[in-house]
Design a protein around this nucleic acid. Structure first.
Lengths: 222, 222
DNA sequence: CTTTCGCGTTAAACTTTGTTAAGGGTATAG
DNA sequence: CTATACCCTTAACAAAGTTTAACGCGAAAG
């Protein structure tokens, strides 16, 4: 979503981004932009600050109210320090002052999308930072400072699912069915043994904990 | 991690960020920085581009090789368009040209951390100040002065709901259904046992009370 | 005033998990 | 073909978490 009241600049930006394979909707004032936002799903909002009817800061607040994670990039002639700071305090992801290089805008836009899409694509994630450890689920290695340890398949799978559920529960039966194929009593005990092993491996960083939730599963926090 | 060869600027930045409660390690050339990176866990890397021994771009490539998710912010006197573009192509999250406002740096840094920490922090409130106690619902810990006690899952859940209803009623049946899944007679008695436990844990600060509302539930006041 | 009911508290009973070590199977090297 | 190493499971006992039981008390109901 692109909200920009300067016709020339707005059109130019839209053309440029479309040439880069982005789908762009251009709105020429803050109110139209907000209506457009409500009726579409956008990956990112590029907002001019000074616009008729509703300014960019107000618009951004409303957008963030509706969707706290929506990436926002401000685009403005205001370069006063206070404005930049206001922009970021609203929760902007980036703030560019006119005149700017259109290529730089693209770069910044992609830097933001890279981050925000990573979370969505995280099912494929294979590299995890666990406190001071680095865990590579593909190579099945766990590194602490200079010390790299090779993990077995089961260790690695279990740790991966704990990572994917960071700070929330990894359901016991889910883990058993995915990693151990069936959730028998003995497999459950086997999983407990593996939890003990992982706790030992991760003991160097005391901020990492694998907490048991009785009857439900485990959660790893850090 | 802060890599900056200009002594004055480096020191100033470090001081400023430390005043904002960040832990900062300052490195004065690219090679020292890389060694530091390997031996520590950082949340973000702030890299000057022109540095002795190893420039910022090269350093960034090496860092990203080791950890593709590491947030990187470039800080540089180079404002040439090609440099900005090179910085972002390496995968930078932001790029600031000198001279810059130190407050803006902080804002941009926090915008990046906001995104990358999203899963950790955003979900819901997890930290509660209960009188002189500090309660962390994620870590399941209750701290009084220097003494930290680990809570069990049920203790922690119950205390969390008491906190969320501070000074107002936590409905008995609501708590039973959310924490104990069903509101049978025995579960209700179990909850009473837990209330007793929490009262004991919180006894050090007499201004905290968990008051029973006969037939309705409990309310915690402080 | 007496009875009933809900809650406070403690401790025992029961269930699940933690931990260590031994056993069993399979791949790899000699 | 045998020996070894490695991974995973099973066993056994210890420890922790949760529920149940029992008894006492005081407030509400009759």
């Amino acid at each position: 979503m692109l909200a920009e009241d300067d016709e020339n600049l707005g059109f130019l930006l839209k053309e440029y981004l479309q040439a880069k394979e982005y789908d762009v909707d251009l709105y020429k004032d803050g109110e139209k932009a907000y209506k457009g936002f409500q009726n579409n799903y956008y990956d990112i909002c590029i907002l001019d600050v000074m616009m008729p009817l509703k300014d960019g800061f107000t618009l951004a607040k409303e957008i963030r109210m509706a969707n706290p994670n929506m990436p926002i990039l401000f685009l403005t002639a205001k370069s006063m320090k206070e404005d930049v700071i206001e922009g970021f305090s609203i929760g902007a992801d980036d703030y560019m002052t006119k005149p700017f290089s259109i290529e730089e805008l693209l770069m910044r836009l992609e830097a933001i999308l890279r981050r925000t899409r990573k979370d969505a694509a995280s099912a494929e994630q294979t590299l995890f930072q666990i406190g001071k450890y680095l865990f590579d689920a593909t190579k099945q290695t766990l590194t602490y400072e200079n010390d790299t340890r090779k993990l077995t398949t089961k260790e690695s799978e279990l740790l991966k699912y704990l990572c994917l559920n960071r700070n929330s529960l990894l359901d016991r039966n889910f883990a058993l069915k995915t990693i151990w194929v069936d959730d028998s009593y003995f497999n459950a005990r086997s999983m407990d043994v593996y939890i003990t092993k992982l706790r030992k491996y991760l003991a160097n960083d005391p901020s990492i904990e694998i907490i048991n939730v009785r009857g439900k599963g485990f959660k790893m926090i850090y």
